[in-house]
Amino acid sequence: MKGRRALLMLFLAAVLGLAAVLLAARWLRQPATSTVRIAVAAADVGLGQRLAPDMLALAEWPAGSMPAGAQREPAALAGRVLKASVQRGEPVTETKLAPAGTLGGLSALIAEGKRAITVRVNDVVGVAGFALPGNFVDILVYAPAQHNGSNGVNETAVSKIVLERILVLAVAQEVARDDTKPRVVNAVTLEVTPAQAEQLDLARSVGTLSLALRNQVDPQPGATPGATRQSVLGTGMAPALAATSAAAPTTAAPRLARAALPPSAEPARYCIGVIDGNRSSKECL
Protein backbone atom coordinates (compact mmCIF):
# COMPACT_ATOMS: atom_id res chain seq x y z
CA MET A 1 0.00 0.00 0.00
CA LYS A 2 2.77 2.36 0.95
CA GLY A 3 4.71 1.40 -2.19
CA ARG A 4 1.79 2.28 -4.46
CA ARG A 5 1.37 5.67 -2.80
CA ALA A 6 5.07 6.45 -3.27
CA LEU A 7 4.91 5.43 -6.94
CA LEU A 8 1.86 7.68 -7.46
CA MET A 9 3.63 10.67 -5.91
CA LEU A 10 6.69 10.08 -8.10
CA PHE A 11 4.50 9.89 -11.20
CA LEU A 12 2.73 13.16 -10.35
CA ALA A 13 6.06 14.88 -9.68
CA ALA A 14 7.38 13.74 -13.06
CA VAL A 15 4.27 14.97 -14.88
CA LEU A 16 4.38 18.36 -13.19
CA GLY A 17 8.11 18.71 -13.86
CA LEU A 18 7.60 17.89 -17.53
CA ALA A 19 4.81 20.46 -17.78
CA ALA A 20 7.04 23.12 -16.20
CA VAL A 21 9.82 22.34 -18.70
CA LEU A 22 7.44 22.59 -21.66
CA LEU A 23 6.01 25.94 -20.48
CA ALA A 24 9.48 27.40 -19.90
CA ALA A 25 10.63 26.29 -23.35
CA ARG A 26 7.56 27.82 -24.94
CA TRP A 27 8.13 31.11 -23.15
CA LEU A 28 11.79 31.19 -24.19
CA ARG A 29 10.85 30.65 -27.82
CA GLN A 30 8.70 33.85 -27.86
CA PRO A 31 10.26 36.62 -29.97
CA ALA A 32 11.82 39.44 -27.94
CA THR A 33 9.93 42.78 -28.01
CA SER A 34 11.82 45.27 -30.14
CA THR A 35 12.59 48.64 -28.59
CA VAL A 36 13.84 51.99 -29.85
CA ARG A 37 15.66 54.80 -28.10
CA ILE A 38 13.77 58.11 -27.99
CA ALA A 39 14.41 61.47 -26.35
CA VAL A 40 12.73 62.01 -22.98
CA ALA A 41 12.93 64.77 -20.39
CA ALA A 42 15.73 64.25 -17.89
CA ALA A 43 13.95 66.56 -15.40
CA ASP A 44 10.68 68.44 -15.03
CA VAL A 45 10.61 71.26 -17.59
CA GLY A 46 7.97 74.01 -17.63
CA LEU A 47 6.32 75.49 -20.68
CA GLY A 48 8.04 78.41 -22.33
CA GLN A 49 11.52 77.16 -21.41
CA ARG A 50 14.26 76.61 -23.94
CA LEU A 51 15.60 73.05 -23.98
CA ALA A 52 19.26 72.48 -23.15
CA PRO A 53 21.23 69.26 -23.73
CA ASP A 54 21.29 68.46 -20.00
CA MET A 55 17.46 68.54 -19.94
CA LEU A 56 17.19 65.57 -22.32
CA ALA A 57 18.11 61.89 -22.20
CA LEU A 58 17.61 58.74 -24.26
CA ALA A 59 15.32 55.97 -23.01
CA GLU A 60 14.29 52.56 -24.33
CA TRP A 61 10.72 52.54 -25.61
CA PRO A 62 8.63 49.71 -27.14
CA ALA A 63 8.64 50.16 -30.90
CA GLY A 64 4.98 49.24 -31.17
CA SER A 65 3.84 52.00 -28.81
CA MET A 66 6.18 54.83 -29.74
CA PRO A 67 4.38 58.21 -29.39
CA ALA A 68 3.66 60.15 -32.56
CA GLY A 69 6.25 62.83 -33.18
CA ALA A 70 8.82 61.31 -30.83
CA GLN A 71 12.40 62.41 -31.41
CA ARG A 72 15.37 60.04 -31.50
CA GLU A 73 18.18 62.60 -31.43
CA PRO A 74 18.37 64.82 -28.32
CA ALA A 75 20.87 67.08 -30.08
CA ALA A 76 18.20 68.07 -32.61
CA LEU A 77 15.98 69.34 -29.77
CA ALA A 78 18.56 71.64 -28.20
CA GLY A 79 17.36 75.23 -28.36
CA ARG A 80 13.71 74.35 -29.02
CA VAL A 81 11.05 75.93 -26.79
CA LEU A 82 8.33 73.97 -25.00
CA LYS A 83 4.73 75.07 -25.33
CA ALA A 84 3.56 72.44 -22.83
CA SER A 85 5.09 71.23 -19.59
CA VAL A 86 6.80 67.81 -19.55
CA GLN A 87 7.62 65.62 -16.58
CA ARG A 88 10.78 63.60 -15.99
CA GLY A 89 10.85 60.51 -18.23
CA GLU A 90 8.09 61.83 -20.51
CA PRO A 91 8.78 61.72 -24.27
CA VAL A 92 9.41 65.11 -25.87
CA THR A 93 7.17 65.07 -28.96
CA GLU A 94 6.81 67.58 -31.75
CA THR A 95 3.33 68.59 -30.56
CA LYS A 96 4.83 69.90 -27.30
CA LEU A 97 7.38 72.09 -29.08
CA ALA A 98 7.01 75.59 -30.45
CA PRO A 99 8.10 76.15 -34.07
CA ALA A 100 11.84 76.14 -34.64
CA GLY A 101 13.38 79.56 -34.11
CA THR A 102 10.82 80.65 -31.51
CA LEU A 103 12.26 82.59 -28.60
CA GLY A 104 11.51 81.43 -25.10
CA GLY A 105 9.07 83.09 -22.74
CA LEU A 106 5.47 84.18 -23.11
CA SER A 107 5.71 84.82 -26.85
CA ALA A 108 6.14 81.08 -27.43
CA LEU A 109 2.74 80.40 -25.87
CA ILE A 110 0.73 82.77 -28.07
CA ALA A 111 -1.16 80.96 -30.83
CA GLU A 112 -0.83 82.10 -34.41
CA GLY A 113 -3.06 85.07 -35.17
CA LYS A 114 -3.53 85.90 -31.48
CA ARG A 115 -2.17 88.64 -29.24
CA ALA A 116 -1.39 88.92 -25.53
CA ILE A 117 -2.79 91.83 -23.53
CA THR A 118 -2.47 92.47 -19.80
CA VAL A 119 -5.22 93.92 -17.61
CA ARG A 120 -4.94 95.12 -14.04
CA VAL A 121 -6.93 93.11 -11.49
CA ASN A 122 -7.39 92.81 -7.74
CA ASP A 123 -8.60 90.02 -5.46
CA VAL A 124 -12.20 90.61 -6.56
CA VAL A 125 -11.69 91.24 -10.27
CA GLY A 126 -9.28 88.30 -10.48
CA VAL A 127 -11.89 85.85 -9.13
CA ALA A 128 -10.11 85.60 -5.76
CA GLY A 129 -6.97 84.27 -7.43
CA PHE A 130 -8.66 81.28 -9.10
CA ALA A 131 -8.08 82.63 -12.63
CA LEU A 132 -4.89 80.63 -13.32
CA PRO A 133 -2.88 80.11 -16.53
CA GLY A 134 -4.76 77.77 -18.84
CA ASN A 135 -8.22 78.76 -17.53
CA PHE A 136 -10.90 80.45 -19.61
CA VAL A 137 -12.72 83.57 -18.45
CA ASP A 138 -15.45 85.93 -19.60
CA ILE A 139 -14.78 89.66 -19.34
CA LEU A 140 -17.46 92.01 -18.04
CA VAL A 141 -17.39 95.80 -18.11
CA TYR A 142 -19.44 98.10 -15.87
CA ALA A 143 -20.15 101.47 -17.44
CA PRO A 144 -21.56 104.05 -14.99
CA ALA A 145 -24.48 106.30 -15.83
CA GLN A 146 -23.66 109.40 -17.89
CA HIS A 147 -25.53 112.60 -18.77
CA ASN A 148 -24.91 114.35 -22.06
CA GLY A 149 -25.76 117.96 -21.44
CA SER A 150 -25.62 119.00 -25.10
CA ASN A 151 -28.65 116.98 -26.20
CA GLY A 152 -30.07 116.07 -22.80
CA VAL A 153 -29.58 112.31 -23.31
CA ASN A 154 -29.15 110.22 -20.16
CA GLU A 155 -27.22 106.93 -20.43
CA THR A 156 -28.12 104.50 -17.67
CA ALA A 157 -25.52 102.38 -15.90
CA VAL A 158 -24.98 98.99 -17.54
CA SER A 159 -22.96 95.81 -16.91
CA LYS A 160 -22.28 93.65 -19.97
CA ILE A 161 -20.19 90.65 -21.00
CA VAL A 162 -18.02 91.99 -23.81
CA LEU A 163 -15.62 89.05 -24.40
CA GLU A 164 -16.19 85.32 -23.85
CA ARG A 165 -13.95 82.27 -23.43
CA ILE A 166 -10.69 84.18 -23.22
CA LEU A 167 -7.59 82.11 -22.39
CA VAL A 168 -5.48 83.20 -19.42
CA LEU A 169 -1.87 83.02 -20.53
CA ALA A 170 -0.19 84.20 -17.34
CA VAL A 171 -0.87 85.66 -13.91
CA ALA A 172 1.67 88.28 -12.89
CA GLN A 173 4.93 86.87 -14.35
CA GLU A 174 4.00 83.18 -13.96
CA VAL A 175 2.93 81.03 -16.92
CA ALA A 176 3.07 77.59 -15.22
CA ARG A 177 -0.18 75.65 -15.60
CA ASP A 178 0.55 72.84 -13.16
CA ASP A 179 -0.33 74.81 -10.02
CA THR A 180 -3.97 74.66 -8.87
CA LYS A 181 -3.66 76.85 -5.78
CA PRO A 182 -5.31 80.29 -6.05
CA ARG A 183 -2.93 83.22 -6.42
CA VAL A 184 -3.99 86.81 -5.80
CA VAL A 185 -2.04 89.02 -8.21
CA ASN A 186 -2.33 92.50 -9.64
CA ALA A 187 -2.21 91.67 -13.36
CA VAL A 188 -3.53 88.97 -15.69
CA THR A 189 -2.34 88.39 -19.26
CA LEU A 190 -4.99 87.22 -21.73
CA GLU A 191 -4.82 85.72 -25.23
CA VAL A 192 -7.11 87.59 -27.63
CA THR A 193 -7.52 88.29 -31.31
CA PRO A 194 -6.54 91.74 -32.64
CA ALA A 195 -10.21 92.78 -32.75
CA GLN A 196 -10.75 91.57 -29.17
CA ALA A 197 -7.67 93.49 -28.06
CA GLU A 198 -9.26 96.69 -29.38
CA GLN A 199 -12.55 95.94 -27.64
CA LEU A 200 -10.80 95.19 -24.36
CA ASP A 201 -8.72 98.35 -24.53
CA LEU A 202 -11.85 100.46 -25.11
CA ALA A 203 -13.82 98.60 -22.40
CA ARG A 204 -11.28 99.31 -19.68
CA SER A 205 -11.25 102.99 -20.61
CA VAL A 206 -15.01 103.46 -20.31
CA GLY A 207 -15.70 101.41 -17.19
CA THR A 208 -14.56 98.85 -14.65
CA LEU A 209 -13.49 95.36 -15.74
CA SER A 210 -14.33 92.08 -13.99
CA LEU A 211 -13.43 88.47 -14.81
CA ALA A 212 -15.90 85.59 -14.66
CA LEU A 213 -14.29 82.14 -14.46
CA ARG A 214 -15.99 79.60 -16.71
CA ASN A 215 -15.95 75.84 -17.24
CA GLN A 216 -12.97 74.58 -19.21
CA VAL A 217 -15.04 72.51 -21.66
CA ASP A 218 -18.18 74.64 -21.90
CA PRO A 219 -18.40 76.17 -25.40
CA GLN A 220 -21.86 77.66 -25.02
CA PRO A 221 -21.98 81.45 -25.50
CA GLY A 222 -23.56 83.56 -22.78
CA ALA A 223 -25.74 85.76 -24.98
CA THR A 224 -27.26 88.35 -22.64
CA PRO A 225 -28.66 91.85 -23.20
CA GLY A 226 -26.69 93.23 -20.27
CA ALA A 227 -27.89 94.30 -16.83
CA THR A 228 -29.17 97.81 -16.11
CA ARG A 229 -30.56 99.45 -12.99
CA GLN A 230 -34.10 98.93 -14.27
CA SER A 231 -33.55 95.25 -15.14
CA VAL A 232 -32.01 94.49 -11.73
CA LEU A 233 -34.41 96.49 -9.54
CA GLY A 234 -37.46 95.98 -11.72
CA THR A 235 -39.36 98.31 -14.04
CA GLY A 236 -40.63 101.37 -12.23
CA MET A 237 -38.47 100.70 -9.18
CA ALA A 238 -35.75 103.16 -10.14
CA PRO A 239 -38.13 106.10 -10.81
CA ALA A 240 -39.88 105.40 -7.51
CA LEU A 241 -36.56 105.49 -5.67
CA ALA A 242 -35.62 108.73 -7.40
CA ALA A 243 -38.94 110.32 -6.47
CA THR A 244 -38.57 109.19 -2.87
CA SER A 245 -35.05 110.58 -2.62
CA ALA A 246 -36.17 113.89 -4.17
CA ALA A 247 -39.11 114.26 -1.80
CA ALA A 248 -37.21 113.27 1.30
CA PRO A 249 -35.71 116.71 2.11
CA THR A 250 -39.10 118.52 1.96
CA THR A 251 -41.01 115.98 4.05
CA ALA A 252 -38.37 115.35 6.63
CA ALA A 253 -37.86 119.03 7.52
CA PRO A 254 -41.35 119.64 9.05
CA ARG A 255 -41.05 116.44 11.04
CA LEU A 256 -37.77 117.55 12.46
CA ALA A 257 -39.18 120.97 13.19
CA ARG A 258 -42.16 119.52 15.01
CA ALA A 259 -39.93 117.20 16.92
CA ALA A 260 -37.76 120.11 17.98
CA LEU A 261 -40.71 122.11 19.44
CA PRO A 262 -41.49 121.30 23.09
CA PRO A 263 -45.03 120.00 23.78
CA SER A 264 -47.51 122.64 25.03
CA ALA A 265 -47.55 122.51 28.83
CA GLU A 266 -50.74 123.39 30.72
CA PRO A 267 -50.37 125.38 34.00
CA ALA A 268 -50.65 123.33 37.15
CA ARG A 269 -54.12 123.54 38.83
CA TYR A 270 -55.11 122.74 42.45
CA CYS A 271 -58.57 121.30 43.08
CA ILE A 272 -60.57 120.96 46.35
CA GLY A 273 -63.54 118.71 46.87
CA VAL A 274 -66.49 120.30 48.81
CA ILE A 275 -69.23 118.18 50.48
CA ASP A 276 -72.48 119.94 51.42
CA GLY A 277 -74.95 117.47 52.92
CA ASN A 278 -75.72 114.98 50.24
CA ARG A 279 -74.09 117.08 47.55
CA SER A 280 -70.44 117.19 46.53
CA SER A 281 -68.64 119.56 44.25
CA LYS A 282 -65.13 120.28 43.05
CA GLU A 283 -63.49 123.66 42.90
CA CYS A 284 -60.15 124.26 41.17
CA LEU A 285 -57.86 127.27 41.51
Score class of each variant (00 low, 15 high):
1 M>P: 10
2 K>D: 14
6 A>C: 05
8 L>C: 07
9 M>R: 11
11 F>M: 12
11 F>P: 00
12 L>Q: 07
15 V>D: 02
17 G>S: 12
18 L>T: 15
18 L>F: 15
20 A>I: 04
21 V>F: 10
23 L>H: 13
29 R>N: 14
30 Q>E: 15
31 P>S: 15
36 V>N: 07
38 I>A: 05
39 A>L: 04
40 V>G: 02
41 A>F: 08
45 V>W: 01
49 Q>S: 14
49 Q>M: 09
52 A>S: 11
55 M>D: 14
56 L>Y: 03
58 L>I: 11
60 E>W: 04
62 P>L: 08
64 G>F: 01
66 M>E: 13
68 A>S: 12
69 G>L: 04
71 Q>Y: 03
73 E>F: 01
73 E>P: 00
74 P>E: 07
76 A>P: 04
76 A>C: 04
81 V>S: 04
83 K>W: 13
84 A>F: 08
91 P>Q: 10
93 T>R: 08
94 E>K: 05
95 T>A: 15
96 K>G: 09
98 A>H: 05
98 A>K: 02
101 G>I: 04
101 G>N: 06
104 G>F: 03
106 L>Q: 15
116 A>M: 02
118 T>E: 10
119 V>Q: 04
125 V>K: 07
127 V>P: 00
128 A>G: 07
131 A>I: 09
132 L>H: 01
135 N>I: 01
136 F>E: 04
139 I>Y: 03
142 Y>E: 10
142 Y>K: 09
143 A>S: 12
144 P>H: 09
146 Q>H: 10
149 G>A: 15
150 S>F: 09
152 G>L: 04
154 N>S: 10
156 T>V: 14
158 V>P: 00
161 I>R: 13
165 R>W: 01
166 I>R: 02
169 L>A: 05
169 L>G: 07
170 A>I: 03
172 A>H: 12
174 E>C: 05
178 D>S: 15
181 K>V: 12
185 V>P: 03
186 N>T: 12
187 A>W: 03
190 L>S: 04
195 A>D: 13
196 Q>T: 01
200 L>F: 10
203 A>M: 08
204 R>P: 06
209 L>V: 02
212 A>V: 11
214 R>N: 05
214 R>T: 05
215 N>C: 10
215 N>V: 06
218 D>Q: 09
219 P>K: 00
221 P>V: 05
222 G>Y: 10
223 A>C: 06
226 G>W: 02
226 G>M: 02
227 A>M: 08
227 A>L: 12
230 Q>Y: 10
232 V>I: 15
236 G>V: 03
237 M>A: 15
243 A>T: 13
246 A>K: 15
249 P>W: 11
251 T>F: 13
254 P>T: 15
255 R>W: 14
255 R>S: 12
255 R>P: 02
260 A>T: 08
264 S>C: 10
268 A>D: 11
268 A>R: 09
270 Y>N: 08
272 I>G: 08
274 V>R: 13
278 N>W: 06
279 R>A: 11
282 K>V: 11
